[in-house]
């Protein structure tokens, strides 16, 4: 582009200073304090002593906490895996549909995710509860004698997680598949590929960027999730999000809570750097950044 009156100027525009100041004051400094606290010592009465203590990070790896971390990893992996399996056929159909249908399904997938997150989980609980829709229906059909326990246990947590995170998987998969040249499948077919070969050797490698992006977008927030296990899981099991919340609000061990939070941020940052560095090469991932903003509330 030719340099114009507007593009010639090289000074930092004054217009960004208010938001820059805001971000420094309400984002960078608070995060800096959390990182600083994670390195400090907790006094006998829960106060923070300003001396270096690396023990907070070591404590994360103690067996009781490690068990919580492991449980969260399992839940996140389960959520990402199930969402991938459920979302792929949907994204595939969207990508192969006409323009109108494509937009319609896209809107239908995104819209529930604009509605209030807590209300969505509440509504899900209405359906799954002891006197919920599913149990009533099954009883009417005389398929069950006693109501199925679908909430306040692991089943509830699983369904809640899938229900909430499915759109995070559909979007990146759709973006990747939508870019895909489907005549390649026809070419493979013409060359005698079986259906399985077409799926494994053509479709899968070409949609891999979407699979990776979607899995990260589900895995990372699912790993730190606190509200869904809390509302759908009853009071039984502890996850990383629950542990961090309780450490901050109940046991008031801020250095330890800060250490866990720091690790969580590091994990999220590393994953997103992977996605973004792919983005420079992969147009699907680049577009996803825009889609994330467009999609609205994201519960990372």
């Amino acid at each position: 582009m030719e340099p114009t009156a507007f593009t010639k100027q090289q000074k930092t525009p004054a217009f960004i200073f208010p938001s820059l100041g805001w971000f420094i004051f309400f984002l960078i400094i608070p995060l800096g304090i959390v990182v600083a606290f994670s390195l400090m010592h907790k006094g006998a009465y829960g106060q923070i002593e300003y001396r270096l203590d690396l023990g907070n990070f070591a404590r994360v790896f103690e067996p009781i906490y490690l068990k919580t971390v492991f449980r969260s990893l399992l839940l996140a992996a389960f959520t990402a895996g199930t969402c991938l399996v459920l979302a792929y056929p949907l994204a595939y159909l969207m990508a192969r549909s006409g323009d109108m249908l494509k937009k319609l399904i896209l809107a239908l997938v995104i819209v529930p995710f604009w509605t209030n997150f807590v209300i969505r989980i509440y509504a899900l609980k209405l359906v799954l509860g002891e006197n919920g829709l599913i149990n009533q229906l099954l009883r009417e059909l005389h398929l069950i004698a006693a109501p199925l326990q679908l909430t306040d246990n692991l089943i509830g947590v699983g369904i809640g997680m899938i229900y909430n995170y499915l759109p995070f998987m559909v979007l990146p998969l759709f973006v990747a598949l939508d870019k895909l040249d489907f005549t390649l499948l026809d070419a493979a077919y013409d060359l005698g590929a079986s259906r399985v070969q077409m799926a494994l050797k053509v479709l899968l490698p070409l949609s891999l960027p979407g699979i990776v992006t979607g899995s990260i977008f589900v895995f990372i927030p699912a790993f730190g999730e606190f509200v869904i296990p809390d509302l759908m899981g009853g009071s039984q099991s502890m996850y990383v999000g629950t542990l961090i919340t309780e450490t901050f609000l109940k046991s008031r061990d801020w250095p330890f809570g800060s250490a866990m939070s720091t690790l969580l941020v590091l994990m999220a940052m590393v994953s997103f750097v992977i996605v973004l560095s792919r983005a420079s090469r992969d147009p699907a991932a680049r577009e996803m950044r825009g889609k994330r903003a467009e999609a609205g509330p994201v519960h990372v």
């Binding site: 938001s19 309400f26 960078i28 608070p30 304090i33 990372i220 730190g224 969580l264 990372v300």
Partner: peptide, 23 residues
């Protein structure tokens, strides 16, 4: 500045909440 703008989108929400509580 652009990375700063993208930061709230990728930062785990729980960390954003508790860091503000601490601050």
């Amino acid at each position: 500045f652009e990375s700063l703008i993208n930061l709230p989108l990728v930062l785990p929400e729980i960390v954003m909440g508790l860091s503000l509580l601490v601050w």
